[in-house]
Amino acid sequence: MQTASTNICERLFNKSICEISLLLNIPRSTVSGIIRKWKQMGTTATQPPSGRPHKMTVLGQHMLQHTLCRSRQLSAESIAKDLQTSCGLQISTTTVRRELHGMGFHGRAGVSKLYIDRCNAKRWMQLV
């Protein structure tokens, strides 16, 4: 049984690549790539993505961000244990660090700030 896409492809094969690209208003390289893919694989469907799927789900990322915002002093190991108990995610500390880095959180020391009391605030306002 032939599908509609098969019929369309068979009809378009009678035309040149330039005619097809002008007819569909797409580049010639795209048309030739689609035709090549059709001849080799018999379909133009894309292949499934390569590689292993992510360990962290969207819910896990939200929980990770919530845990970090609650207390920024936690270590990656304690965050991994907390996620294991709350969400049931079995992730390593390296994965936690990688996800935090992807979210924009980095393990850096905070900037040292001067203690500002009333006297220092008055002096500062007089300088400015």
Rank of each mutant, 00 (worst) to 15 (best):
M1P: 08
M1E: 06
M1Y: 07
Q2F: 06
Q2L: 11
T3P: 00
A4L: 08
A4E: 05
S5I: 12
T6I: 07
T6P: 00
N7F: 08
N7C: 10
N7P: 00
I8C: 08
C9R: 12
C9P: 00
E10V: 06
E10H: 12
R11L: 09
R11Y: 05
L12P: 00
L12K: 01
F13Q: 13
F13H: 10
F13A: 15
I17S: 08
C18D: 12
E19W: 03
E19F: 01
I20V: 11
S21A: 14
L23P: 00
L24E: 05
N25Y: 02
N25F: 01
I26E: 09
P27F: 00
P27Y: 02
R28L: 03
T30G: 10
V31T: 11
S32V: 04
S32R: 12
S32Y: 05
G33N: 14
I34D: 08
I35M: 08
R36K: 13
W38P: 00
K39V: 03
Q40M: 09
Q40Y: 09
Q40A: 15
M41P: 00
M41Q: 11
T43P: 02
T44F: 04
T44P: 01
A45G: 02
A45V: 07
T46R: 11
T46C: 08
Q47E: 10
P48E: 02
S50F: 03
G51W: 02
G51T: 00
R52V: 05
P53S: 04
P53D: 03
K55Y: 04
K55A: 11
M56N: 08
Q61E: 11
Q61D: 08
Q61S: 08
M63D: 07
H66K: 15
T67F: 01
T67S: 01
R70C: 06
Q73R: 15
Q73L: 06
A76Q: 03
S78I: 10
I79E: 01
A80P: 03
A80T: 03
A80D: 03
D82N: 09
L83A: 05
Q84R: 12
Q84C: 12
S86V: 05
C87R: 00
C87M: 02
G88V: 01
G88F: 05
Q90F: 04
Q90V: 07
Q90I: 04
S92F: 03
T93C: 09
T93M: 06
T94Q: 14
T94I: 06
T95G: 13
T95E: 11
T95C: 11
V96D: 06
R97W: 00
R97N: 07
R98N: 14
R98L: 05
E99Y: 11
L100Q: 04
H101E: 08
G102W: 01
G102P: 00
M103A: 15
G104L: 05
G104N: 09
F105C: 07
G107T: 09
G110S: 15
K113S: 15
K113R: 15
L114Q: 14
Y115H: 14
Y115W: 06
I116C: 13
D117T: 14
D117C: 13
R118V: 10
R118I: 06
N120H: 14
N120L: 07
N120Q: 15
K122F: 05
R123W: 03
R123E: 07
W124N: 15
W124Y: 13
M125V: 12
L127E: 14
L127W: 12
